Structures are given as structure tokens and as C-alpha cells.
Amino acid sequence: MTLIYVLGLLAVLVPVVLTPVAATRWAPVVRDGRAAHRLRVAVAGLTDAFGRTGAALVVLLAGCAAVVAICWPLGEALARLEPHVDHPVFDYVHARRVDTWAELNSFYTALGDRYPLKWVTGVATVVFVVLWRRRRWWVPLVVLPLQFIVEQYVQAILATMVDRGHPPTDLGTYPSGGCARIMMTFGTIAVLAMVTWRLPRGVRVALVTLVVTLVSLEGYTRIYAEKHWLTDVLGGWIFAALLFAVTALAVLVAEGRIRPPAPSGVTTPATREPVPTAT
């Protein structure tokens, strides 16, 4: 039982420690890399062709298709681990369940259900529409409900394509929707907050860390509450990260926050040294 408590502690400590490191050290490297430059070039071309709103829609649709293309074979691979990984983990947790700890996990894991997140989405939509009343107020009005709908249907597509079944105690299947819903809802709220206010870098990192920690803890509670196989949660974390990245990019494109690529320097032709003439 001690191992289960330790894993619960790690579900909090690991994202709290690693997320700031990733945000301060790894993210700048990715931002300045070749892939990011190509992305800025593509976004600039889409924006020129379709405008910011049209480009954001193209990014969202293409990104969702890419998420499905990645997570479908991932789900098929994870499903093959079910007899060797999921069943032993499930049996280990089931044999060591403690009522008080189970109640705490069941209380927290409900945060990832659709009903409470509908309220969170609705309240956040009203708040940001009011805050954006003197700017493009319709952006949060569209983005916040849309993130909820996108997660639901992309997850349903993957669940149908993989069709791996569920634990004997619940109907949860691949990928873990609770993890994805928390990432999408609170992550989108965090992105809108960063766009709304000029937050210091430390505050932005803290917001990202909080969201990642909520998602990590949701995955742990989904396993202990016996709602998902372990590999459902692992796939749910990857699915959540990819789908949120697509959604965040679409929001930034719609707001014109993607920095266009710097124009290549103009090189002047080399000048030849004058040839000395004999006198």
C-alpha cells in the first residue's frame, strides 16, 4: 500500500518539478528551432490566404486530424499491453484499496467528468467575454465551448477506432477523457489569461505547472478509482498534450500572436578588389 501512496505523491511532485524546467530550458530551444520556424512560415502563408480566423480554423482541423493519426496506432500498441501491464496493475490496486483513500480519489477524479467541466467552461466563457468586450469578444465565446466539443468528438473517434474495451469496474476506455478534458478546459483558460493580461514569466510558468499537475493527478485517481486501465491513462496524457497544443496554437493564430518568420538577410554581391595596373 505504501507504493500506492508514493505514486500518488509522485503524481504531484514530478510535474511540479519538471514543468518549470521544461518551460524555462526546453521550450526556448523548441521555439527557436527549425521546426518552429517552418511552423511560423506555414502560419504566415495560411494567414495571408485565409485571414487570421480562417488560418486558425485550418490549424485546428488539420491538427485534430494529426492527433488522430498519431493516437490511433498508439492506442493499438497500448492495447496489446493489456494482459501484461494493465491486468497486473489493476489486480494490485484492487487488492490494496483503502476506503478512505478511495473516497478521496473518487472525489477528485470527478473533476474530469463532463458535467462539472461544463459549468467551468460556461462560467469562464462569460468572464472572458466581459473582459474582452472592447476587443474581439467573440473569440472566447467560440473558443471555450469549442474546446469542449473538440475533445469530446476526437476522443470518441479514437475510442471507436481502437475499441479496446474497459476495466470490469467501469466503462472507461482509451484514451482517458478525464485527463484530456482537464487539460483542454483549464489549459485553454490559462492561454486566454495569458493573452488577456501581460503576465510575468513566473506567473505563466506557474499556470502551466498547475494545469499539468491537475492532469497528472487526474490520471492517478482514474487508475485508483478503477475507471481506466493504466495504458488508457498513459495514452490519455499524450492525447491531452497533443490536442491542447493544437487548440492553443489555433487560439494564438486567431489572435495574431504567432511571430512571423524574420525576413532573410539581404546579401550584397561581393566586390572584387581592384586589380593593380602596371605603371
Rank of each mutant, 00 (worst) to 15 (best):
A124R: 03
A95G: 09
W26C: 05
P274C: 01
V89K: 02
E273F: 10
R181D: 10
A240W: 05
S216H: 01
S106I: 00
D32I: 02
C71T: 07
A42Q: 13
H94D: 14
I238E: 03
V191P: 02
D32L: 08
A11E: 01
V89F: 12
T277Y: 04
P175C: 09
M1S: 15
G202A: 13
C64Q: 11
F50E: 05
V21H: 07
P168G: 07
L171V: 11
A36R: 07
A156Y: 13
V275Q: 10
A180T: 13
L192G: 04
A156S: 14
T173L: 07
L243H: 08
L131E: 09
L242Y: 03
V123A: 15
R204P: 03
A254S: 08
Q152G: 14
G219D: 00
L192Q: 05
L234W: 15
P145R: 09
T231E: 08
G75D: 08
F148L: 12
I238D: 00
V126W: 09
W229K: 02
R31N: 13
A27T: 08
T221N: 02
W237N: 04
A95Y: 07
F128Q: 04
L234T: 06
R164L: 02
V212S: 09
T24Y: 10
H87K: 10
P276F: 07
R134G: 12
Y108P: 00
K227H: 14
G112H: 06
A262N: 11
T169S: 15
C71H: 03
L252T: 02
A270C: 06
R164D: 11
G63F: 14
T277W: 06
P168M: 10
V12G: 00
F239E: 04
H94K: 12
A55R: 03
A124Q: 05
W72Y: 14
Y220E: 02
T279E: 11
L104H: 11
F50P: 00
V253H: 03
A49D: 05
S106R: 13
M1P: 11
T24M: 11
K118C: 10
L214C: 05
P200A: 10
H87Y: 10
G75H: 06
V127S: 09
L141W: 08
P263I: 10
Y5E: 11
V233R: 02
E76L: 15
V139Y: 06
A278S: 11
D163K: 05
R40A: 15
A248V: 04
V233Q: 01
R136M: 08
R114I: 12
Y108E: 05
T100K: 07
V127A: 15
T19K: 03
T121W: 07
Y174Q: 08
L104R: 08
V43G: 05
L144S: 04
L207D: 08
L81Q: 04
P15S: 06
T247E: 13
G8I: 00
C179P: 03
Y224K: 00
V30H: 01
R257F: 06
A241E: 01
V139M: 10
